[in-house]
Design a protein around this nucleic acid. Structure first.
Length: 130
DNA sequence: ACGCTGACTATTA
DNA sequence: CTAATAGCCAGCG
């Protein structure tokens, strides 16, 4: 079963739970899942951890497919490097992302994460010491 | 196969 | 400070 490439369309239907190599998307999902509650990360940090070659845009794209991910991916914990909820627009509701973050103890103001630097969770940094 | 688009980022004016 | 441009990679018409 080596389908190294799965289109987004297939991903929605497949989303296997026994893959090993997985696609770039699943790597992103896994990493995002590691983000502790009440913390946030950025697309660039994820991209850099997996290989900046992929580009931060691909991370956002992965989030787009995350709606069918398994288990659920806390996409609301992923913001742009400015701490802005750039992806809120893609949520079921434009406020779902903010509400989810506030629910975790994150303060949002003007679609921006307060104390973003303090709440920022760098995967490369956390995983580097492990 | 070609070109556009995109939940980004960095640089330059 | 903001605006515009380039780089980046993969999916889709």
């Amino acid at each position: 079963m080596a389908s190294p490439k799965r289109t987004t369309t297939q991903l929605r239907s497949v989303l296997p739970s026994g893959n090993r190599e997985q696609d770039f998307f699943q790597q992103v999902w896994e990493l995002v899942r590691l983000v502790p509650r009440g913390r946030v990360t950025t697309y660039g940090a994820i991209a850099a951890c997996l290989g900046a070659r992929s580009g931060a845009r691909m991370v956002g794209w992965a989030m787009n497919s995350s709606h069918g991910a398994h288990p659920k991916v806390p996409a609301h914990r992923v913001v742009n490097r400015l701490g802005l909820l750039s992806g809120k627009n893609h949520f079921p509701s434009p406020t779902a992302m903010q509400e989810a973050l506030e629910k975790e103890g994150v303060t949002i103001q003007d679609d921006q994460v307060m104390d973003f630097e303090k709440l920022f969770w760098d995967p490369a940094k956390e995983l580097d010491g492990n």
